[in-house]
Design a protein around this nucleic acid. Structure first.
Length: 289
DNA sequence: ACCCAGGGTCGTC
DNA sequence: GACGACCCTGGG
């Protein structure tokens, strides 16, 4: 364990608030000075933006620079992505402008699977609370500057939990789903290493859908927000349904809007960038609601 | 006190 | 393919 620092000067497309509050992650919290602190793997990382520079500091075993470049997707040209999305229509141009500092994180696949199973029919504050309690009980403690942090549980560690243990974390009806999925991954019925090697998005998606608690929406979030990193998916939740109906479809009752219709529309308009389009739209709609 | 919604999925019909 | 049930919590 060691303390490290890493600075990116004159950064492009990187706004901590946009990145950490666009709904892709649940383990980052804002500090009083506006910086954010979170746990990534076995490291605690603090991210602060000063002028146009990003100051990373960390405490943990991994190389901070390497970790940050990978986790924050720093080698991707978001300026070009935003340019292409903005040219699609004025709605995309507006939402891209609103969330101009969004970056889609490369989060650990196992952690992303569990986190988004928990997200089902749930709200963000509660999701964060559950994951925090889960990490405190089944993860490893890291102490830094007098505060305690906990790593996300490993598969092996979480497999020690009974259904009742999980229920006691506040998981509600998701307890059995977490229990079963943990076992499926532990015994490699679903092999996460192999999943990373598969190129065909549909095949990866179909495999994810075999996991308990993983339906279409959760599968798409896993594909988009984890190290699987697929942009040819379009997670449809209540907010995305809402924004797509408001902008394009204009049905009186948004809950009646056909999912197929939204999928078709997204594919037509956004093409292979639909996953990114979804995230800018989601952040804009939810933050201005 | 009561009702509602929240980054949906599952079992049943 | 449609429909209701599902645990829990914060906010109106």
């Amino acid at each position: 364990m060691q303390e490290q620092k890493y600075i990116i000067e004159d950064v492009d497309s990187f706004e901590p608030k946009h990145i950490f509050e666009c709904g892709q992650c649940f383990r980052w919290n804002e500090n009083e000075n506006g910086s954010y602190i979170g746990v990534v793997g076995s490291n605690v990382i603090n991210v602060e933006k000063v002028d146009n520079n990003i100051l990373f500091s960390s405490f943990g075993a991994d190389n901070l620079e390497k970790l940050a470049i990978n986790y924050f997707d720093l080698n991707r040209d978001y300026k070009e992505i935003k340019r292409r999305l903005s040219s699609i229509d004025e709605y995309l141009a507006n939402s891209v402008k609103y969330g101009s500092g969004i970056r889609i994180l490369n989060q650990d696949l196992w952690e992303t699977i569990i986190s988004f199973i928990i997200s089902a029919n749930n709200n963000i504050p509660r999701i964060k609370g559950i994951i925090e309690r889960m990490s405190k009980k089944y993860g490893n403690k890291i102490e830094w500057k007098g505060k305690e942090y906990y790593t996300f549980p490993t598969v092996e560690s979480l497999s020690k939990a009974t259904v009742e243990d999980l229920r006691n974390l506040g998981l509600g009806f998701r307890d059995v789903r977490i229990y079963e999925t943990t076992r499926n991954i532990l015994n490699k019925e679903v092999d996460l290493e192999e999943l990373h090697k598969e190129k065909d998005t549909k095949k990866v998606r179909d495999t994810l859908l075999t996991l308990s608690g993983v339906g279409p929406k959760v599968a798409d979030c896993i594909l988009l927000f984890s190290t699987l990193k697929r942009f040819d998916v379009f997670p449809i939740d209540v907010w995305v349904r809402r924004v797509m109906n408001d902008l394009y479809i204009k049905n009186e009752d948004e809950t009646k809007v056909n999912k197929k219709e939204i999928e078709k529309l997204a594919k037509e308009k956004y093409g292979n960038l639909e996953g990114l389009a979804q995230q800018y739209l989601f952040y804009w709609k939810r933050d201005t609601a």
